[in-house]
Each structure stands twice: as C-alpha cells, then as structure tokens.
Design a protein around this nucleic acid. Sequence first.
DNA 1: TGTAATGTTTACCAATCGGTCAAATTATCC
DNA 2: GGATAATTTGACCGATTGGTAAACATTACA
Lengths: 214, 214
Amino acid sequence: MAIPRAARTQRRTRIQEEKEEIILEAALDVFSVSGFRGSTIDQIAEVAGMSKPNLLYYFRTKEAMHRALIDRVLFTWLEPLRAFDANGNPESEIRSYIRRKLEMARDFPRESRLFANEMLQGAPHVEDELRGPLKALVDEKVEVIRAWAKAGKIAQCDPYHLIFSIWSTTQHYADFDVQVRAVLGDEHSGEGRFEDAARYLEQLFVDGLRIRQG
Amino acid sequence: MAIPRAARTQRRTRIQEEKEEIILEAALDVFSVSGFRGSTIDQIAEVAGMSKPNLLYYFRTKEAMHRALIDRVLFTWLEPLRAFDANGNPESEIRSYIRRKLEMARDFPRESRLFANEMLQGAPHVEDELRGPLKALVDEKVEVIRAWAKAGKIAQCDPYHLIFSIWSTTQHYADFDVQVRAVLGDEHSGEGRFEDAARYLEQLFVDGLRIRQG
DNA sequence: TGTAATGTTTACCAATCGGTCAAATTATCC
DNA sequence: GGATAATTTGACCGATTGGTAAACATTACA
C-alpha cells in the first residue's frame, strides 16, 4: 500500500523529484493566470499530463500545491532586493536593482503573476510572510537608502515609496503584459521593449533621485 | 410571464435601476477579489442580499454581470488620461495626472483590482478595447509628450514607458494595498500614505523628467 | 379595482468541483 | 526472479457550480 507523502520520512525518490517538478510547473501555469480560487486540480492535471489522483498522490490538496509554489516564489522573488548593497554607490546599485527586477519580469512572468494574484486577493496565504521576513528585509534596505540621502548622495525622499515604485514599474511588464503589448502595438512588442523599458526607467530613477556619483 | 431582460425594449423600471445597481456593487466586491473564474454567482447573490435566481433575472449570466462592470470601469478609468491637456504646461499636467490617478487608486480600489485581475488573466474579455480605444487614446497623448520633449520642455524619453510608469506606480497602491500596508506597518498605513506617495511620485517624475517650466 | 406586466422564490438540473478508495501496475532491491 | 514498496488508474463520493422552470407575489396603470 502506498504511504501518504506527508507521512514519509525517507529520502525522496527520483520519480518523486521529477513528478513534483512537473506538477509545480503545471500548477504555476494555471495558478498564475486564474488565481487560487479560479484554478482547478483537473486543469493542472491536464497541463501536467497526468491523472488527477496521481497528482493528488504527490500533493494531497490544492492548497499544498499552491503553498509549495508560493514558498518557492517568495524566496527567489526577493533575491534582487537582498543583493542590494549598502557599500556600493547609489547610482550603480539602483541601476542594477532595476535591471535585475526587469530581467525577472521578463524571464519569470508567471511567478510575478502568481504573486500579483495573491496580492489582489488580499494575501490570504502569505500575509504573515509579508509582515515578517519581507518587512524586515525592506526595513533594512530602507536604512541604507536613508543613509545615502543623509550623506547627500541622493535626494531626500521616502525610501519605502522609492522601493514600491521600483517594484511596481518593473513588475508591470510581467503582470500587465497584455496591456503593454496592446498599447505598443505588435511592431514594438518584441523583446526590445525590455531594453527600452530599462533605459527609460534607469533615466527616470537616476535623474528623479538626483543621484550624485559618490 | 416575465420577459427576459435582454429581449425587452421598454424603458427600465425604477426597481430595475435600483436592483441592477445593487447587483453590480456586489459583483464588484466579489470579482475584484477573486477574478472572474474564482467568483461565484452565489457569492455575489449573498453580498447583494438576494436570491440567485432573482439576480439572474437581471443579468442572465455571470458573463453579463462581468461585462457590465468592465464596460463601466473601462470608461471611468481613462477619465484622467483624457483630461491630460496638451495646452497645459508639462509640470502641472504631469503633477495633476499623478494626483488624479492616485485619487482613483484611493477612492476606487475595487475598480483597479477588477481591471488588474482581467489583465493578469490575459484580458480575455477586453483585449479588443485595449487594442482599439485605449491604444488610440494613448497614442494621442504620446504625441503631446513627444512635442514637449522636442520643444525641450521635458527630457527626451519614451512616452509610452512614461505612461506605463505612471499607471503602475499609482495603481500599485490599490492593487498591492495589502503588501503596502504590511511593509509600512500599521503605524504608517493610514490615509496619510497617499499624501506621502503623491509627494514622492511628483518629485520622482518632475525631477526624473528634468521638467523645465514652460 | 382589476389585470397585465414585472419581480421573486422554491425546487431542481446536469456539469464540475476537491478529494477518496481499492485495485492494478511499475520500480526497487536483495 | 521474487518480495516489497512506490506509483498509477478508474470508479466513485458529496458538495458546489452556473443556470432553468414554473409557481407565486407584487407593482404599475387603466
């Protein structure tokens, strides 16, 4: 008889690793478009190319799949902010932060949309993580930015809103991709639009913060 | 026998006007949080305080409710951009555009989230409107901004991405409200945060575009 | 006040939902 | 190769889904 996955303590099988990966990949496809409530296990099973009971053998509930995805995304999503370096100079740090966030929007749009979906629904599954680890990390970087402002390296500004504005402008290209494409028209919707966006955003933030090379 | 609403040609009744308003209000509550697929007619009926068949007497399908909402939101949502005046001076026009968009995020967050949900799902119900009327309006305003840049009133920049960045930064405060509150902490999450955001964003864009009074 | 149109409700439908179960199949390891 | 554990499947469950039919209640208007 099969032992329910959650009760197992043994090392994971090769098949387990592979199948769980396939399932999470399919779940990301579905959840990122339809949100948690709007997605069905059947949809995910079909995308994953396996039967529903088989899928439920690896993740016992829909919540379990969603939680596994969210945990993974939350971690990697904050990678660029973690890399934000207090010892670097303001201009290059902000430039590369924008770059990295924009690259993530381009390379991992589903992850961005999964997160956006969760926010729109009021973060029912991750509010604790937002108030805990996320806030802690942001608070830390806010202090860095404040120090830069105090030293006259950048203009006086609210560091929280600065971070919000970088998040929103970059993630916009993943979350509102369909709108961006529609407005730009098919001719300007190629991959070049990310380069255009990077150029514009770097100019906006560097000049907007009146950054002086330090 | 009751005549299906869609087949009626007569003027709308007082009861119709009232009930349809109540239903759309409830539908906005539900759709804006859960998206189209994740929302149920039963939820909407409960929020509206009427029975499901009664609700379906006024809107024959879930799609009909959603479409009615989207149509209404799409129109009012573009009001600030329509007000964007080519004859005004760049600084005050951009300042007041940011203000207006921020006020809408504050006063109509459900409408913003409804739209965001639709975008995340790939705009299955409104892609035509995006490629048609929306693109047309944006193209028109883009020309205004281009003229400003040509006249040296603002820095050279891609007007499309400028508009995207104003959209994203302002709507962020509605769509990601829960994250903003979590990061700012309960002490800074009052209504004052909109004033802080307005101050920061105006500074960012005015300096970022190196606007010179015209 | 009568009556026809409008509005509301109860009971119901087939389809889909998340999830279970036991049986059948496959992989692993001695 | 055989025993044992891991994996997969089809059949199924009760609850919920979007939506309907028809009886019933209310309103508007002559």
